[in-house]
Amino acid sequence: MTRNENVKQFLVHHRARVNPEAYGFSNQQRRVPGLRREEVAQLAAVSVSWYTWLEQGRDIRISPSAIQRIGKVLQLSPTEQAYLDALVFGSRHQPPHNAAIPREVIAMAEALSPHPAFIRRANMDILYWNAAARDQIYDWSTVPEQDRNSLKLLFINEEYQQKIHDWEQAARHSIAAFRAYYAASNHAEAFEEIVRDLVARSERFRTMWHAQAVNKVGAGNKAIIDHHGKINHYTYTALEVESAPGIFLIFYLARDPSQIAV
């Protein structure tokens, strides 16, 4: 799925969820829910043909102010607006997708033991993990390297799925975060390859992917089911490496200190 196709699907989805009456338009005689294209164009002060081309995924000249006006009409949240901006304009000054992990970042992950810590790319490829992450979260060495990806494991690895408490919520949250990272990255192919693979291998992914949810991951809560069936609760923080944009150190802190193996 190309960037233009993502723009198209995102705009169509969010246009459909807007109540026309919020802008003084009648809800009568509408074949589909939401605003019409010409109504979005009118409200955003752009031509109907220009907005139609944008929604069709054509390559056209776009100004940031026009995208901001469209986002306002579609009642996008700040996170959704940032996602649309990133989809349309991309991001700058990013290193190659396959750039090496800085040695000091690996040392940091190790130094965080006995707390779980691992390193991943923006597309959720898992690159490195400490022993605590292996023991308390997952041993990624047990799966083929091409499947060492948090989003893939959520949908195609039954053992991994069984470790995630409230799997559906975690899956939807991960897809929403993946979309946000995808839009902000200049390495679209690294994301699109994962989407193509999951579309081919997981019906549940195909269904959830089309929901168009977007969310950023900076911190949150995670519940992991251990080998004994006990649910262990963690808070986590995702830190992007300033010297290597697109690489993240993920740190888990157990809510119950007794979970920590020393």
Rank of each mutant, 00 (worst) to 15 (best):
R31D: 13
I175D: 01
Y51W: 07
S91R: 09
Q75T: 04
I225V: 11
R179I: 04
V32I: 13
P116S: 05
D166S: 07
S91M: 05
A22D: 10
N98M: 02
G57A: 06
F205M: 09
G220Q: 03
Y23Q: 02
A107I: 02
I194H: 00
L239S: 14
V143S: 07
F191I: 00
I194Q: 01
V143G: 07
N221Q: 11
N4M: 10
E203D: 15
N149F: 11
R36G: 09
A170C: 12
L76V: 03
A184S: 06
A111H: 11
A219E: 08
K72P: 13
E240N: 10
G229A: 02
F178D: 00
E203V: 13
K222Q: 12
A109R: 03
K230P: 11
D256T: 09
L54M: 12
E55Y: 15
S243A: 14
W209A: 05
I224A: 02
P95E: 00
A219C: 07
R179M: 10
A131P: 03
A223W: 14
V7D: 08
V195E: 01
G90C: 08
S47F: 05
S258E: 09
L11V: 11
D226C: 06
H210P: 00
A184R: 00
R255V: 05
R37T: 09
V18T: 03
G34Q: 12
G71R: 04
P64S: 12
A44W: 02
V7K: 03
R148C: 07
L76T: 06
A244F: 12
T2L: 10
E192Q: 02
H13P: 15
A180C: 05
V48K: 05
K216V: 08
E55H: 15
E39L: 13
E5V: 13
E5H: 15
R37D: 07
V214M: 00
E168R: 13
Q212C: 10
A177L: 05
A180Y: 06
E38C: 07
F251A: 15
Y234H: 11
A132P: 08
I70K: 06
W50M: 06
I224G: 02
R15V: 09
Y138T: 01
P144A: 08
W50I: 09
E192T: 04
E159D: 14
E189M: 14
V199W: 12
N4R: 08
Q94R: 10
I260D: 13
E145Y: 15
R134W: 06
R17Y: 10
S258R: 12
Y128V: 09
F205A: 13
A200K: 10
V7E: 11
D256M: 05
A44N: 05
W50D: 08
S26N: 08
A41S: 07
R201E: 11
A132R: 04
V18Y: 15
I60D: 04
I62W: 03
F251Q: 12
R179E: 06
A41W: 03
R121S: 03
E158A: 15
R92K: 09
V262D: 14
L249H: 09
V214W: 00
L153K: 02
R103S: 13
A261W: 09
